[in-house]
Computed example of a mutant assay.
Amino acid sequence: MRKISFILGLILLLVVAGCKCTKNAAAYDKLTANGWELEYITGVRIAFEGLYPDTKPQLSFTKTGEANGNSSCNPFSTRYTTKEPNSIAIEAPKAMTMRFCEGEGERRFLDMMQKITKYDVTPDGKLVLLMDDIVAMRFKKKP
């Protein structure tokens, strides 16, 4: 009887663990399946529209560990790494044009990207990048 209880408990544990892995894999697939456009950034005293009056920052992730985008002014390319569950580290841009950008929007975006530790894709399709448990940036699917 103990063997059966142990085996059933082990099977239940594996099923629960498998469901969590599937959920994390689904979030990763959503992360890499879309291009993203910034709609919120934390920690700035200037209104979002004032930081990005013309072009909003954009970001996309490939399954090969590359992140590409536009800082609202300059295109860039970099690397990222993920670990379970939903942790992410985005490196400073490795390649980037050097066009002059007015305001502080570009700098804020690039600095914040390097502080990100986690990600989530919400049920309504938003990409949320977090600093630990604090929402740092939120993106919508690129139009």
Rank of each mutant, 00 (worst) to 15 (best):
M1G: 01
R2E: 04
R2Q: 08
R2K: 12
I4E: 08
I4W: 03
F6K: 13
F6Y: 07
L8A: 11
G9R: 03
L12T: 14
L12C: 08
L14I: 04
V16L: 08
A17Q: 15
A17K: 14
G18Q: 05
C19A: 14
C19E: 14
C21V: 03
C21Q: 11
C21T: 03
T22A: 12
T22D: 08
T22E: 12
K23E: 15
A26P: 01
A27T: 00
A27N: 05
Y28L: 15
K30Y: 03
A33M: 10
G35T: 09
W36P: 00
E37Q: 15
E37Y: 11
L38S: 08
E39P: 08
I41N: 14
R45T: 15
R45C: 11
I46S: 15
I46G: 09
A47N: 13
A47C: 08
E49L: 04
G50P: 05
G50C: 06
L51I: 07
L51D: 01
P53N: 10
D54G: 04
D54Y: 09
T55Y: 11
K56L: 11
K56M: 12
L59Y: 03
F61Y: 06
F61P: 02
T62C: 01
T62K: 06
K63N: 10
T64I: 08
G65C: 05
N68R: 15
G69S: 12
N70F: 05
N70Q: 06
N70P: 03
C73D: 04
C73P: 01
N74T: 07
N74C: 14
P75M: 12
F76V: 00
F76Y: 15
S77I: 05
S77P: 01
S77T: 07
S77E: 06
R79D: 03
T81I: 06
T82S: 07
P85Q: 12
P85H: 12
N86M: 14
S87W: 09
S87K: 15
A89C: 07
I90E: 02
I90K: 13
I90C: 08
P93C: 07
K94C: 01
T97M: 13
T97V: 09
M98K: 13
R99N: 12
R99G: 03
R99W: 02
G103Y: 09
E104N: 04
E104H: 00
G105F: 08
R107C: 00
R108F: 04
R108K: 14
F109G: 02
F109P: 00
L110A: 05
M112C: 09
M112I: 07
Q114A: 14
Q114W: 02
K115R: 09
K115D: 12
K115T: 13
K115F: 04
I116R: 05
T117S: 13
T117N: 02
K118F: 05
Y119V: 10
D120F: 01
D120G: 12
D120V: 08
T122A: 10
T122Y: 14
D124A: 06
D124Q: 06
K126P: 01
K126R: 13
L127D: 01
V128A: 10
L130V: 12
L130G: 01
M131G: 06
M131I: 13
D132Y: 11
D132L: 07
D133T: 14
I134M: 13
I134R: 09
V135R: 06
A136I: 04
A136Y: 08
A136C: 06
A136F: 09
K140F: 00
K140G: 09
K140M: 00
K141Y: 00
K141I: 06
P143H: 09
